[in-house]
């Protein structure tokens, strides 16, 4: 007993020394995740990849804190303030209020938030927003071109702008295909005019992802785009069971065919939201002193959004459709195609 205690004490002393030695890095970037967690295969993980890439490229320290509920946002931000972070990156629109409060109380600290741009701007917060509707427009066009049933579907996590931007783009992409090709492909789950549609109400439940995809499939949809982080993994599991001929999934945030190794061959493509690249930009700015409040926007033009390769569907997607999609990309960048309908 006493031996054990002595060993413990000396161990603690050693750890103290370790801790103080380890804390001497020049720059530390910290991230607070939303409730999806750091390994959500979605926006938290992608943003964290930006921090990790910065750790490799710039030789900085990186830390993160996971929020288990909305009540964690503020204490998590505070804990990172105490941890001497040089920049604090909060991930998600739902953290907007907590981040604003924290930034207001700590004008000397630098903050950046994914999926939120404040109006008016806060001098020490740099918002990162994404024109995901541009990329989702392309995915909608592809889906309309690939649908056998003439019905495609989408659903979201919560009815908030960063989610519905995907659904808007998807909807108008399908509509564009209809107008260009004379098709009549229907979109279930979202109406951009009334701003109403299908929402799971959470960003966590894989069961919901499965149930919602099942409902859309029962209504005839053979391609579904879930916009709810890890919830979409449940939809992909259903697609694996039914087979990709019956149901295909359009991934969001990251290239899901690569991320979701449990469900190979069900992702037609993915709408990429390159949070890793904007997070890296923000860290760079904070490091070289050019950081200021405001916002940066990821677009097709600056590669902040995009679509993933077709992977296993590469041979199934007709060459003509691929070419049209590339034309649309150029058209959106040039401004000749309006993604807003």
């Amino acid at each position: 007993m006493f031996m054990k205690k002595a060993a413990l004490t000396s161990g603690i002393a050693a750890a103290f020394m370790l801790a103080s030695a380890g804390g001497a890095s020049a720059f530390t970037a910290c991230q607070v995740t939303d409730v999806g967690g750091i390994d959500d295969s979605g926006f938290n993980e992608t943003a964290w990849k930006g921090v990790q890439d910065s750790m490799k490229s710039y030789g900085i320290d990186g830390r993160y804190l996971e929020s288990q509920s909305e009540t964690d946002y503020e204490p998590n931000l505070n804990a990172l303030l105490d941890a001497k972070c040089d920049i604090i990156i909060s991930v998600g629109f739902l953290m907007a209020d907590a981040t604003a409060t924290s930034a207001g109380a700590n004008p000397g600290a630098k903050f950046s938030i994914v999926d939120m741009a404040y109006d008016p701007t806060i001098p020490n917060v740099l918002g990162q927003v994404y024109a995901t509707n541009q990329a989702a427009f392309m995915a909608g066009y592809i889906s309309a071109g690939m649908s056998q049933t003439g019905v495609v579907g989408t659903f979201g996590g919560i009815n908030i702008p960063p989610v519905t931007a995907f659904m808007d783009g998807f909807y108008y992409g399908v509509a564009y295909h209809n107008s260009q090709k004379g098709t009549n492909v229907q979109v279930l789950g979202w109406n951009p005019e009334s701003k109403e549609g299908l929402f799971t109400g959470n960003f966590e439940s894989l069961d919901d992802g499965r149930a919602f995809a099942q409902n859309l499939y029962d209504e005839g949809a053979d391609i579904v785009m879930p916009v709810a982080g890890p919830v979409g993994l449940g939809s992909a599991a259903l697609a694996t069971e039914l087979g990709p001929d019956a149901l295909k999934i359009v991934g969001v945030d990251a290239d899901m065919e690569v991320k979701d190794t449990n469900n190979p061959g069900v992702y037609l493509t993915s709408v990429l939201k390159r949070m890793d690249s904007t997070v890296m930009q923000v860290i760079k700015q904070a490091m070289d002193g050019t950081f200021e409040g405001g916002m940066i926007v990821g677009t097709l033009a600056n590669d902040g959004v995009g679509i993933a390769p077709y992977h296993s569907f590469d041979s199934a997607v007709p060459a003509a459709l691929k070419a049209e999609v590339e034309e649309i990309r150029a058209g959106i960048i040039a401004g000749s195609i309006n993604v807003g309908g």
Binding site: C30, L65, E66, D72, A79, A83
Partner: peptide, 15 residues
């Protein structure tokens, strides 16, 4: 709860 948060920040151990 408060200590767990610090545990994650300092040592990177999952909450």
């Amino acid at each position: 709860e408060a200590g767990g948060r610090q545990m994650q920040v300092d040592a990177g151990v999952s909450i």
